[in-house]
Design a protein around this nucleic acid. Structure first.
Lengths: 155, 155
DNA sequence: CACAATTAAATTGTCCGCAAGTGAATTTTG
DNA sequence: CAAAATTCACTTGCGGACAATTTAATTGTG
């Protein structure tokens, strides 16, 4: 007689196809976003991840690397070289915190601050491309946030 | 009097925050998936993009590079080195098509074919981690597919 | 048939993303 | 207070992504 083993729910064959993977839907949509942003961001000289960092800094113009990493869920191995590029392009400044010399404070330069005026153009264009209402966007965003938090806490 | 210019809908300030960007929700969920897959895929020696290629090959075990690229929406610049690694690991074989010498046909080796038996374990674990029903997954998948197709056709 | 245009894959160069390790500064503890 | 543990950022190394270029093969057209 069968013991009380964990029910390994049989996965229907159709659900195993690449096209039906939720992970792939997320993966390929992320790439589609990056490509959609490319021509717009090229004009202001930002890559997509750099744009995300700028969004964080436009909200709070002076933050340690760590704080930026927490918002974007990226580590310093990714951020250090990226921030160096933003600095070389004159958009940010990096200074050691005198109260805690371990920390590097990232802050906007005037150029970096000025670039915020592009935000309406950029978001407008992407909104057009995405072709969905604010309401719809909010729905998907909510579902993804739940999914993300499940995936993260599972680890 | 105002002319009939395209209505540039004012974007509410709150919608400009990093945390409220749909693109960021997709971006960070994609990373969360990769991280969730990592410990599972490590055991079978695959990276996440390599796993996606294997999914495509488990559906159709012999395909030109081009066809794989179309399914994954990746170009040869990404696939060529990735496929070389899969070949070195003994999971696939690459052979020039004799009917069209430009094409390289990718096919599964016995080892590659055998690895398909891991699919239930892998998908089961991820299903657990994602923590949502097949129904929910189907909903998000559908929404993302629509979004992706909008973003792509806008280019 | 010949030559131009197209197609497939690979390569090169740049930028992420992340694991692992380093070094310096700070905090915790015995 | 001194040694140990922790924290922060940087670096290195590897594997994607992708634009742009290269090479070879095929197709289309005059």
């Amino acid at each position: 007689m069968k013991a009380h083993v964990a029910k390994t729910m049989e996965i229907p064959e159709e659900e195993k196809r690449l096209e039906n993977q939720l992970c792939f839907a997320v993966y390929s949509t992320a790439h589609a976003f990056t490509r959609a942003y490319k021509p717009i961001l090229d004009r202001v000289g930002l890559t997509y991840p750099q744009y995300l960092v700028m969004l964080a800094l436009w909200e709070k113009s002076e933050q340690p690397v760590k704080a930026i990493g927490e918002q974007l869920d990226l580590d310093s191995g990714t951020l250090s070289p990226l921030l160096k590029r933003l600095e070389q392009n004159g958009l940010i400044k990096r200074t050691r915190d005198s109260r805690d010399e371990r920390q590097v404070i990232v802050s906007l330069t005037d150029n970096g601050r000025a670039m915020r005026s592009e935000i309406d153009t950029i978001m407008g264009a992407i909104g057009q491309a995405a072709g969905c209402t604010l309401e719809e966007m909010k729905t998907i965003r909510g579902l993804l946030k739940g999914l993300r938090s499940n995936l993260t806490s599972a680890a």
